[in-house]
Computed example of a mutant assay.
Amino acid sequence: MTAAVDTRVVRRRLGPGRRIRLAFWVGPVLLLAVWALGSAFGVISPAILTAPWDVLTAFRDQWVEHDLLGNVLASLARAGLGLAFGALAGTVLAVVSGLSRWGESLIDGPIQIKRSVPTLALIPLFIAWFGIGQEMKVVTIALISMIPIYVNTHNGLRGIDGRYAELAETLAIGRGEFVRHVVLPGALPGFLLGLRFAVTSSLLGLVVVEQYNATSGVGHMMTLAEQYGQTDVLVVGLVIYGVFGFLADATVRLTERKVLTWRRTLDG
């Protein structure tokens, strides 16, 4: 009992936001330190992994002599469009399926079938349908992002306490108000959890689709670097992808802390 009380006191003093921020940065900083020390002392061979300072030099060369900024913006546009379409589709389908038995009968089964089929395996089919341009890439990322959004939002809707519905009937609250003030806020934690998975999934899809006939983007830069044996530029691309994911996940976490303050209040 004493240990449990002490844990609550420590958490209250530290504050949930501060504790998350510290934990979130420790891992990346430690990873960078291990990489730098291993390269400095020869533990990590340059043939295996380029040293951090050489990666910085390659980054500067790509920024000054090549269109690194244009490639980064092109990749962000693809990932952002795909993630936006996937989040919208996943949310709408989850709401329809979660609030209607007919909707669940029509939607949930096909979605579960799709979960068992890797989206990346469908790329040849998407190429036949949409060509090898931007549309195929955005559709692939959107479909990859849609699944975690749907699954977690749907679970959030199904996990809402039935007593809220009974209370709404007692107070004669309309269906629209009940959905707006009870159902959607109750599903928001599941949506944000799904969004975190969707961000990671969209970046995984981006890495793959940019290998297909891309004329711009970080993947295009890495493809050219592979052809010319520029391992330092390859690591630059990997670092950029990693930074994309790190910052995107941090943004979702920050949003989650801001919009779900009511949950911490209820938890005491």
Rank of each mutant, 00 (worst) to 15 (best):
L184D: 05
L157N: 06
E177H: 11
E135T: 15
I160W: 07
A187F: 06
E177F: 09
R196A: 10
L188I: 03
F130G: 11
R158K: 15
L203M: 00
P185T: 04
L195C: 08
A198M: 05
K137G: 12
A187L: 05
G205F: 03
T200I: 06
A142M: 10
S145V: 08
V199R: 00
F130Q: 07
G162Y: 02
A198F: 07
G190A: 08
P148F: 11
G162F: 05
A172V: 13
L171M: 14
N152M: 14
D161R: 09
P189H: 05
L192M: 11
A168M: 13
V182E: 05
G190E: 06
H154C: 12
V209G: 06
L143I: 15
R175L: 08
A165M: 12
G176E: 04
V209L: 11
E210Y: 07
T170S: 15
F130A: 12
G194C: 09
R196C: 07
V208S: 02
G194V: 03
R180K: 10
L206P: 00
E169F: 04
R163L: 14
R196V: 04
N152I: 14
I144T: 10
P185E: 02
G131A: 11
I144Y: 01
R175E: 13
L195T: 02
L167N: 10
H154V: 12
E169Y: 01
E166T: 12
T170V: 15
V151H: 02
V182M: 07
V179G: 00
T153C: 12
E135W: 09
L203I: 12
L206A: 01
T215A: 15
P185F: 03
A187G: 10
E169N: 10
A187E: 04
H154P: 05
K137M: 13
A165Y: 10
L195M: 13
G186F: 03
Y150T: 14
V179E: 00
N213L: 07
Q134N: 13
E169M: 12
A214R: 04
F191N: 02
R163Q: 13
I132L: 13
A214F: 04
R196W: 02
G186S: 04
Q134A: 14
Q211P: 05
L167S: 12
A214G: 10
I141V: 01
K137P: 12
R163T: 15
F197K: 00
L157Q: 05
G162M: 09
E210A: 06
V179N: 01
L203S: 00
A165K: 12
A142V: 08
A198Y: 08
A172P: 03
S145K: 06
E169A: 15
P148G: 10
P185R: 01
P189F: 01
G162V: 08
F191W: 13
G174P: 02
A168D: 12
R163M: 14
L206H: 00
N155S: 15
